[in-house]
Amino acid sequence: MCTTCGCGSDQVHVDGTILHQHDHDYSGSRRAHVHEHGVSDVGESRRVRIERAVLAKNDRYAQTNRQLLAEHGILMLNLVSSPGSGKTTLLVETIRALQSDLSIAVIEGDQQTDQDAMRVRATGVQALQINTGKGCHLDAHMVGHAIQRLDLQENSALFIENVGNLVCPAGFDLGEAHKVVILSVTEGEDKPLKYPDMFRAADLMLLNKCDLLPYLSFDVCRVIEYAHRVNPSLQIIQVSATLGTGMPAWFDWIKRSHHCAVKAKRAIVSTQHASD
């Protein structure tokens, strides 16, 4: 991350262009570093209290995103999973089912390529690709830039398909209403215990590829039990994105969440009117 303005490194690309390009002003500590060589042992050691959360800046960006989206009644969902869980297929099928009733946009996060964004654009909705380069997760600052670039409609839905990774995205609040973790039945029942942070951070788990269960020794009861050990309030829906099984329950969940976002916007607007 750039230490001057806090923007992502020049490894980060949004739809092929570098997220931020600007001259770095090294007048701060790096000049001090030069100083260090010239003047040795000048100062006296002292202790300074800092007490600052390392991710405080990310959390402030996330809060800005959240507030902006709330004011426009936009539901933002952060889809997280390991690579190969079927996230993109699930997202494309979700868009196809809901796009006639709901304006939808997508932010795609991948280290490289815009293949997922192209798959999403084929449905006709807006999709912005963020390539994180060597980065293993999206952060709230990248998402804030993407929100600015998208032409988001009032009362719409914005899906983030995070970088495929069950570890790193767990700690980064993007300003989403909910994290939705997708686990496929080809991955093994013990994933919630192996990667508890992600399952703790999520509000909903979609158990995908359930059409393959007859061919696997995957124990659905066990994965649900493990997931609830980590997060007893985690909601779980069993789906097959390719066959459509269980998908209506997921669509209903989105509609309910979207309804909450629109209702919250009305409350904000009426509060603003009352204070005018």
Partner: peptide, 28 residues
């Protein structure tokens, strides 16, 4: 490897503190 992001965020806090408090070297 989100530890890289964490380390970068730590450096940012350190550099902001250096600018605010006027120190030129961090020992610990």
């Amino acid at each position: 490897m989100h530890e890289l992001s964490l380390a970068e965020n730590m450096l940012q806090i350190i550099e902001e503190s250096a600018a605010e408090q006027g120190f030129i070297r961090v020992k610990t």
